[in-house]
Write a protein that binds this DNA or RNA. Structure first.
Length: 491
RNA sequence: GACCCCUUCGUCUAGUGGUUAGGACACCAGCCUUUCACGCUGGUAACACGGGUUCGAGCCCCGUAGGGGUCGCCA
C-alpha cells in the first residue's frame, strides 16, 4: 500500500511525457503542492482532499508536486512521509509526483525571458541596503513595501561583477484583481505591491516564481490551497500577466484552527496525519471529518468517498476558518469503525495488541478477538479504544481486576459463580443457548439476571463493563470461561 | 503598522429579502437494558455590535469590534 518513492527524474520531468501542445487539457486539473517539512499537516491533508475531490468530481486529474527547492529541509524521509500519508488517506494521484527542484532550468529560463522582454530587471541591492529601505518604508507607514532603485536605473551603472537578483517589473498603477472561487472578488492596489524577486542573486528561483511557472507548465486549471496564500496570489497573477499566460482559477480555503480558535500548533496536540493514524483513527473517518470542516452540503454528515466525489464542489466551501473538534472526529470515527470490515479491523487490533507483553497470541487469540469484534466495534471510538477493550480476551490468568469488579466478587457471589459454573459446563456455547440457560438459572433461583451477570462479567473480564455476557462467554470459549470462573471463585 | 480575508447554537454547518432560523457533534433528561455502548424520544443553545436600504433583513450597503492571514534573495 505504501507509495513507491520515485527518484527525482534528473532533467526529465513528466512534462515531457505529457506534451501540452498536442493533448487538449482536461477540463479540470488540480494539484497538491506540499513542501517536505517532515510531516503531512492536517490542514495540508484537507487541501489535498479538496483538490482530489474537486478533480474527481469534474472528471479531471489530480497531481502532486513536491516543493523541494529548499534542499536543506527536503529529505527523502520527509518526502516519504507525504507520499505515505496521501496513500493512507486514499488520495491517489494521476501521475508520479513532480519535484520542483527538477525544474530549475525552466524557472531560470522564464525569468530570463521576462528580463529580455523588459518585464523584469536586475536588482543589485545588497542585504544592508535592503534592510535600510525597509526601515524607511516602515517609518513612512507604507508597510514593509520597498522600491528598488534599480527598477529604473541604467544597467550600465551596475557595479561590475556584482551579484544581482531578478525582480519583476510590476505595474505601479491600477489594481490587481483575483476572482477567487471561495473568497469572491479580491482586489488590491498595485501601489501596495512591491517588485517580487523571481531569481535570487545565487540564481535560484523563489517559491512565488516557481509556483507560477510550474502551475502553468503542468496545465493546472484550478489552484485550491490554504487561505494563507491569498495575498501572495496578487504577485503571482502579475507574473502570469507579464508572461501573457492565462492564470488558473484560484480557490483559497480558510485555515483550520485549534479548538481554541488560534492557529493550529504543537500545543493543540496532533497536527500531522501520522499522529491521527497512531491515535487509532481510520483514514475514511479522517477524510469524512476533514471534508465537513469548511465544506457543507445540506444536512450531509456521514459521507463515503464515493458520495464525497459525487457531492463535492467549490461552492460548498465556506469562507470562515474552522476549528478542529476532537469530539466530532471521534463520533465520525466510531461510525466508520462500526461499518468497517471485520477482518481488516481484527488485523489492526491484533497488531496493536501484539505489541504488548504477556498477551495471548496466535490462532486462538485471533479467534477470540474475531468472535467478539462485532460487539466491541459498537463500543469503541478509535482502534486504540477497541484494542483496550479487547485486551482482556488475551490476558493470562490471574486477571487484573478493576476496583469495582473486585468489589463485586464477594464471598456470596463467588459461591454463586461456583454453582453457575456447573451449569455452564453442560450448556452449548452459543449466544442463544447461553442466554436461555442464564435466564432459566436465574428464574429457578428467583434472582435478577443482573445479580449474576455482573459478578460473572467481573470474573470473565476483570471489569464491570463489557459486551453482552453471552457474547463474552462465546468469545472466550467454554474451557477458558470455566477457568476464569474457577480462578476467581477460589481466589 | 500597512494591506487582504472572515464573523449563524460551545463546535461543524444549512440558510442567497418574508423560516416557529434547520441538521450534526457535544451537553442534559427519558426510554431500551445483564454492565458499558449502540439505538430511540425529548430538551437547553446562535444570526458579534451600530447605522442604513426596504413594506419586510441572518441574507443587501456602510461603519465598529473581534478573529485570522500576508507583508523574506522561506516554502
Amino acid at each position: 500500500m505504501a507509495a513507491t518513492l520515485p527518484a527525482a527524474p534528473p532533467g526529465v520531468t513528466m512534462l515531457e511525457a505529457r506534451p501540452m501542445s498536442d493533448t487538449p487539457p482536461p477540463r479540470v486539473r488540480t494539484r497538491f503542492a506540499p513542501s517536505p517539512t517532515g510531516m503531512l499537516h492536517i490542514g495540508g491533508a484537507r487541501t489535498a482532499l479538496f483538490n482530489y475531490l474537486f478533480a474527481r468530481h469534474h472528471g479531471g486529474e489530480f497531481l502532486l508536486r513536491i516543493e523541494d527547492t529548499d534542499r536543506e529541509r527536503s529529505t527523502e524521509a520527509a518526502i516519504r512521509v507525504i507520499l505515505d500519508g496521501l496513500a493512507w488517506l486514499g488520495l491517489e494521484t494521476d501521475a508520479p509526483p513532480l519535484f520542483q527542484s527538477s525544474r530549475h532550468a525552466r524557472h531560470v529560463e522564464v525569468a530570463q525571458r521576462m528580463l529580455a522582454a523588459g518585464h523584469a530587471y536586475r536588482c543589485y541591492l545588497t542585504p544592508a541596503e535592503l534592510a535600510e529601505l525597509r526601515e524607511k518604508a516602515k517609518a513612512a507607514g507604507r508597510g514593509m513595501r520597498i522600491d528598488s532603485p534599480w527598477r529604473d536605473r541604467d544597467p550600465a551603472e551596475a557595479p561590475a561583477g556584482a551579484p544581482f537578483a531578478i525582480r519583476l517589473r510590476a505595474p505601479r498603477e491600477g489594481q490587481t484583481v483575483v476572482e477567487d472561487l471561495v473568497q469572491g472578488t479580491v482586489r488590491v492596489a498595485n501601489a501596495e505591491l512591491d517588485d517580487m524577486i523571481l531569481l535570487r542573486s545565487d540564481g535560484t528561483p523563489t517559491y512565488l516564481h516557481a509556483v507560477v511557472v510550474d502551475d502553468h507548465d503542468m496545465g493546472i486549471t484550478h489552484v485550491i490551497r490554504g487561505d494563507d496564500h491569498l495575498t501572495n496570489t496578487f504577485r503571482q497573477v502579475q507574473v502570469y500577466d507579464a508572461m501573457g499566460w492565462q492564470a488558473p482559477r484560484f480557490a483559497h480555503v480558510p485555515l483550520i484552527h485549534g479548538p481554541d480558535g488560534a492557529k493550529l500548533s504543537k500545543r493543540h496536540g496532533a497536527q500531522s496525519v501520522t499522529e491521527f493514524r497512531d491515535m487509532g483513527y481510520l483514514p475514511e473517518a479522517l477524510c469524512n471529518y476533514l471534508l465537513r470542516l469548511g465544506w457543507g452540503h445540506g444536512d450531509a454528515e456521514i459521507l463515503s468517498r464515493e458520495q464525497a466525489v459525487d457531492l463535492f464542489d467549490i461552492d460548498g466551501v465556506g469562507r470562515a476558518p474552522s476549528r478542529l473538534d476532537p469530539a466530532k472526529l471521534a463520533f465520525i470515527n466510531a461510525h466508520w469503525l462500526r461499518v468497517a470490515d471485520d477482518g481488516r479491523i481484527a488485523g489492526e487490533v491484533l497488531a496493536l495488541l501484539g505489541r504488548h507483553e504477556g498477551l495471548l497470541g496466535g490462532a486462538e487469540a485471533e479467534r477470540r478477538v474475531r468472535a467478539l469484534l462485532g460487539a466491541l466495534k459498537e463500543r469503541a471510538k478509535t482502534l486504540l479504544d477497541l484494542a483496550d477493550a479487547a485486551a482482556f480476551l488475551l490476558r493470562p490468568l490471574p486477571l487484573p481486576m478493576t476496583p469495582k469488579a473486585e468489589a463485586l466478587l464477594t464471598a456470596g457471589n463467588r459461591a454463586v459463580l461456583r454453582e453457575l459454573a456447573a451449569t455452564l459446563a453442560g450448556v452449548a456455547f452459543t449466544p442463544e443457548a447461553l442466554d436461555a440457560a442464564l435466564r432459566e438459572w436465574c428464574a429457578a433461583r428467583e434472582m435478577k439476571l443482573g445479580a449474576v451477570a455482573q459478578p460473572l462479567r467481573a470474573a470473565l473480564t476483570g471489569s464491570t463493563a463489557s459486551p453482552g455476557i453471552e457474547a463474552v462467554l462465546v468469545a472466550l470459549g467454554r474451557e477458558e470461561s470455566l477457568r476464569r470462573i474457577a480462578a476467581t471463585a477460589q481466589g
